[in-house]
Design a protein around this nucleic acid. Structure first.
Lengths: 213, 213
DNA sequence: AACGACAGAACGATCGCTCGGTAAAAATGC
DNA sequence: GCATTTTTACCGAGCGATCGTTCTGTCGTT
């Protein structure tokens, strides 16, 4: 957890301002790209001056770090929510995990696009944080799938690959939304993908529709 | 097809130099990001001066356009190759399309990462070119799948979604290669994904391994 | 009077890009 | 075929703009 410089000693104020900075920066950067978003513009969008902005951050790159850290928090709360709903069959649990994951992506679509965009601008350390976030999600899904196979509820040839595919499908909703939104809502997308996955996992002879929720 | 300014009238030389520029620029930008790659650096990497570089391009953004155009050519040749191998069963054709697509992604992984990275830096028009490339691939795959369903070879609930998933899986190989390369080679990845897709499509009760060439 | 949040002018660095110059090659004249 | 002019690929110093960042000053609160 790297330190980000601030000239304020009011912890709550720093947290509030930085939260505002993260939110506004993501919006701007997704719209105009990182390099075309100047600190002046960002400050203006925040209703501050550049000096005021630098009261709460140490450098422009710190903003990236703050955003990355914010996504780490989101990942953590996603995994927490997934754990919480583990009280029915594994099929139900898996279905709910996918629903939680994908609705989360939909809710923070800008953020996911942002991550993709700035990935190559990140320092090696910051990049690792992003990697670890995704890895944790894959690992969780893989665990659920493996458990399902062990209990005979699922049949799968490669749980790791399927877990990865869920992440790929989720990323696609963010990256390729311009295309998908012509044909699907997030709900119909979830329904379709869940159906396909469960067909594969349970070997139903006909594609089934599982009520996602 | 936008025009890119040049001060040379030697068409072949322009083509050669620009090809060199595209290749070198992708390498540099993937390594350092677009904004951190200056025209000076690029010129140095090309063994030229900035003045010499601007002999063949009109602006830095033109480089992006040239790269985007290069990927359009790649997409076209991919689709051509797919069409060429349509001489067996639809299953064989579909399998071969996936193999061609994914090996192409592997071959130009830098380029695919690049596209993802600069997407938000692109002008609206250039963005559309990228979108159309992906759309054409999805459309082709969807056509193959629909044909397979019509002929009774495949069973699928939503061909469009499955076609999109292939693209998502291919993009994932480029974007998430840092993770996948720990566990798969491109060949084993193709094998695994093809197997899963065909299991879903043909409804085999056990995951089958299709020899992907 | 002291402090902290913020403003905004100013600085140094770097950027994309231009432009006058050069040396070699091609075209031209005789 | 040689000399001269024109063209062309390329160089690199330099321009103007903009960037990230700093720093001094202001104003309201304590």
């Amino acid at each position: 957890m790297r330190k980000v410089r601030t000239f304020s000693s009011d912890i709550d104020l720093v947290k509030e301002r930085r939260s505002h900075i993260v939110k506004t920066a993501v919006e701007l950067i997704v719209k105009k790209g990182y390099n075309h978003t100047s600190t002046r513009e960002l400050a203006a969008a925040l209703g501050m001056s550049t000096g005021g902005l630098y009261h709460y951050i140490g450098s422009k790159d710190d903003i990236l770090y703050l955003i990355i850290n914010f996504t780490s928090d989101l990942t953590q709360s996603l995994l927490d929510n997934c754990t919480k709903c583990n009280n029915g069959s594994i099929t139900q649990h898996f279905t709910e995990c996918i629903r939680l994951y994908l609705t989360g992506v939909e809710q923070y679509r800008d953020l996911h696009n942002f991550i993709n965009h700035v990935m190559l601008s990140l320092s090696v350390n910051d990049r690792r944080i992003v990697y670890e976030n995704e890895s944790r999600i894959v690992a969780y899904l893989e665990k659920v799938l493996t458990e399902g196979v062990k209990k005979g509820e699922f049949r799968a040839h490669d749980c790791k690959c399927l877990a990865h595919n869920v992440v790929a499908i989720a990323n696609a909703w963010a990256n390729r939304g311009w295309y998908l939104k012509r044909y699907y809502t997030i709900d119909s997308y979830i329904k379709e993908q869940t159906g396909a996955l469960l067909t594969l996992l349970t070997g139903a002879s006909d594609p089934v529709h599982v009520t996602a929720r």
